[in-house]
Design a protein around this nucleic acid. Structure first.
Length: 307
DNA sequence: ACCGCACCCTGAGCGC
DNA sequence: TGCGCTCAGGGTGCGG
């Protein structure tokens, strides 16, 4: 029992934030529910931080429109709309995008979940955190966008106009190379982890996979980026690609099991080597995994395996 | 150009 | 039992 509270703090609470794999899995799941179906109506919540494009404008511009294809760019899901608009969706920290057929206790709060058996299936009812609701002319399943903390984003932008958010993105994490990382780090004094999290360098990498990739590559997250060797950059790029790919595969395989594509139920959580394992033994050398702040993010590493 | 940090938000989990 | 506090994090934008 009693691990000290300080060691527990920041430990895994069972809901990884959406990074590239979670976004990609969500995109794949939502694609057949969204693409090619004419939108009859969009029901929105009140204006908030969540709506880059105001809700009333969103409703106006999406009514009668059809999303032709759905892509992922970094952590953004981008819909190509037949009106000439692009629909940008970002899941932020707690965003969930799913069809009205979803039945999962994972869509409930932990309090509500606690009173139910883990396998219980419950119909999802739109709540105060459901900011977007797409209805279609074919009367088929609706699509919901729910986001408790409103760190997620929705916006419409004209396809023929530049979009600062997308234009800023660097190379997609699934195509990252050691050479790219090496060049991007040469003049950076900031920690290597900060570079991995910089979406203008590697689009799609987030806190979990940055920590995991650095562990496998044997590089301490706090090391100055410019001090990371070419060989280490190659290792980081290779390991990042590996953990991301593996996560998409395992998450993708589990998704059909529970229907709700909330991006939080991949199996990768069980393969974590350092993330949120503070105080637990390293699975390679048994040293205690440490946690510290790097680039204002909770950061986990093995003091023995990483240098 | 680069870097660190405040801000946005709300639920979980802790101490008392 | 329950209140109140702290913490978590992605992306943006600002000041140094």
């Amino acid at each position: 029992m009693g691990r000290p509270a300080a060691a527990m703090r920041g430990n895994y609470r069972g809901r990884p934030m959406p990074e590239l794999p979670e976004v990609e899995i969500t995109r794949r799941h939502i694609e057949p529910l969204l693409v090619g179906r004419r939108i009859a109506d969009v029901v929105t919540g009140s204006p908030s931080y969540f709506f880059i494009t105001p809700p009333d404008e969103l409703r106006k511009r999406l009514r009668g429109a059809t999303v032709k294809q759905l892509e992922r760019r970094g952590k953004y899901i981008v819909g190509d709309v037949d009106t000439g608009d692009s629909l940008l969706l970002h899941l932020g920290m707690t965003g969930q995008l799913f069809g009205s057929g979803a039945k999962s206790v994972r869509l409930l709060s932990s309090t509500a979940r606690a009173s139910l058996a883990p396998e219980t299936q419950v119909d999802f009812e739109p709540d105060t955190h459901t900011h977007l609701r797409f209805r279609f002319e074919d009367d088929g399943p609706e699509v919901f966008f729910r986001d408790v903390r409103k760190f997620g984003k929705v916006m419409l932008t004209a396809q023929d106009e530049p979009n600062a958010r997308l234009d800023r993105l660097g190379r997609d994490a699934l195509t990252v190379t050691g050479e790219h990382l090496f060049e991007a780090t040469r003049k950076r004094k900031t920690p290597i982890k900060a570079v991995l999290l910089d979406q203008s360098v590697i689009a799609g990498c987030g806190n979990i996979y940055a920590d995991e990739a650095l562990f496998y590559a044997g590089v301490r997250p706090g090391r100055r980026a410019a001090r990371v060797t070419r060989k280490e950059c190659e290792a980081i790029a290779r390991e990042l690609l590996r953990v991301l790919t593996r996560s998409i595969e395992t998450g993708g395989s589990s998704i059909s099991d529970y229907v709700a594509p909330d991006g939080s139920d991949g199996q990768y959580q069980d393969e974590r080597r350092v993330y949120a394992r503070t105080g637990e033994p390293c699975l390679v050398c048994e040293s205690e995994i440490r946690r510290k702040l790097v680039a204002q993010r909770g950061t986990h590493y093995c003091p023995q395996c990483q240098s």
